[in-house]
């Protein structure tokens, strides 16, 4: 049902997905280095088999879940979403995955829980960026529970119908299309339900530049660069900038989540 409600309109908007080559060679995955080409160069060392996800906090069924067990019985869908990086570039990605809401239902969210926290795997021996400590690891992110339950929010396991490339966050990553890309945490090994707003990596590093919400918002600039426009990856040397859309173009679907909130304060 959600596919009809969200995936199809995305197609109908005439979004032209980037090529798999583009999507998998221009990445931010600091565990493998800070260069855009570093993840493609080094992520092959990532060990993803077996993959277990620790589910804890305010859930009815905590535990160490094998990836396949966590996903079994859930409907996998294709979603073609805009992907907007806080660095003011963007792509269109045809993700495959399950709605996070379905996973949350499976693990049983307790009534007091208000946030979902995520954690990325740390494999120092396989991750040169972790060894050189460019930022603190493990990378952590979080969503408010209503954001996490939103039908647009995906746990993606593939792109173009193929298993998720390692540099894009194999074997399973978050995709929150109306937020800056760094919210969409990669290679998830832990999901925690909590009643406290969880810490998030970039907010911890620089709270003035990166807020907890980090919704795509052309009217609120990042202190070091404008968010009013962006450049689609793949247009070559003479590609034109395009205006950035409020909530990355998903305002009709998600604006109500933030009704009454000052988005300049809650950036």
């Amino acid at each position: 049902a959600a596919l009809a409600a969200t995936g199809a309109p995305a197609m109908a908007q005439g979004l032209e997905p980037n090529t798999l080559e583009q999507i998998s060679t221009y990445n931010n995955y600091y565990e493998f280095g800070v260069g855009k080409e570093d993840p493609a160069a080094y992520a092959s060392a990532l060990d993803i088999d077996p993959w277990t996800i620790r589910v804890d906090g305010m859930v009815d069924r905590p535990g160490e879940y094998a990836l396949a067990d966590l996903l079994s019985g859930l409907q996998s869908e294709e979603r073609i979403y805009r992907f907007r990086c806080v660095e003011a570039w963007s792509m269109v990605v045809p993700w495959n995955g399950v709605e996070l809401a379905d996973v949350l239902d499976k693990i049983g969210v307790q009534s007091g829980a208000r946030y979902v926290a995520f954690e990325t795997v740390v494999q120092p021996e396989n991750m040169p960026g972790v060894r050189s400590r460019v930022i603190p690891f493990p990378y952590v992110e979080g969503l408010r529970l209503d954001e996490a339950r939103h039908p647009l929010t995906l746990l993606a396991t593939g792109i173009y119908g193929q298993p998720m490339p390692k540099q894009n966050g194999a074997p399973i990553r978050l995709v929150v299309p109306w937020k800056y890309g760094f919210k969409s945490i990669k290679s998830i090994v832990r999901i925690t339900l909590t009643d406290q707003q969880p810490p998030t990596t970039w907010n911890r590093l620089n709270s003035r530049e990166y807020g907890f919400y980090s919704n795509v918002n052309p009217e609120v600039d990042h202190p070091r660069w404008s968010q009013a426009s962006e450049r689609r990856i793949g247009g070559g040397l003479f590609s034109r900038r395009q205006d950035t859309l409020m909530f990355n173009g998903y305002g009709d679907e998600v604006a109500s989540l933030y009704a009454g909130m000052d988005l300049r304060e809650n950036y």
């Binding site: 080559e21 060679t25 221009y26 855009k36 570039w89 990856i233 040397l237």
Partner: peptide, 18 residues
């Protein structure tokens, strides 16, 4: 380098690369 960017050999985002 400009030639490489023009021909897509500086990755998918040649402007930033250059």
């Amino acid at each position: 380098l400009f030639w490489l960017g023009l021909n897509g050999d500086l990755g998918p985002e040649p402007i930033n690369a250059l």
